[in-house]
Amino acid sequence: MTITINGQQVAVPSDPRVSLLDLLREHLHLGGSKKGCNQGACGACTVLADGERILSCLALAVQYEGRSVVSIEGLSPDGSLHPLQHAFIEHDGYQCGYCTPGQICSAVGMAGEAKRGLPSAVTADLAADAVQLTHDELRERMSGNLCRCGAHNGIIAAIADTFGRPAVAEAAE
């Protein structure tokens, strides 16, 4: 009974009440993922499960047995920075930094969704194959991640810089 967390096999907690977020933070001392609300409302606990963004606060760890979970600590190997992390620094995508790990994991998952052609609530043409990650699309797709410091403009700029342009280019092909 194990979960793969950032590439490491980890035993599933014996108490099924343990959330994936508490497994990360309390048991494994991976403090990047934050407990902002513990009720699904803020996105600070966002991690990737088999590449898909989920909220670790609403996930019972035991339900993720056999799956591969990546948190901010495992996003890029050996202490290097993910291109999106560089972009956050460049665009001032944070102030206090509390929401940042969740924002970054969420944006990585969001980019995968866009690449698969998944529409959003603001996509005008549901039949279109390619998604153009416009400013409005990014804001809607990232609306599950709140930032109390109001760093949204920098956050969206960093994400657009990293994922927006390639997606637009692909769509134009």
């Binding site: 996105g43 989920i54 996930a59 959003s120 609530a121 549901l126 599950g144």
Partner: peptide, 19 residues
């Protein structure tokens, strides 16, 4: 059935819809 796509996409957040 575009109304169904639109209704789902209008709810919750990307993370919650994945779960």
């Amino acid at each position: 059935y575009p109304a169904l796509s639109r209704a789902i996409l209008a709810g919750a957040s990307g993370q919650i819809r994945n779960m």
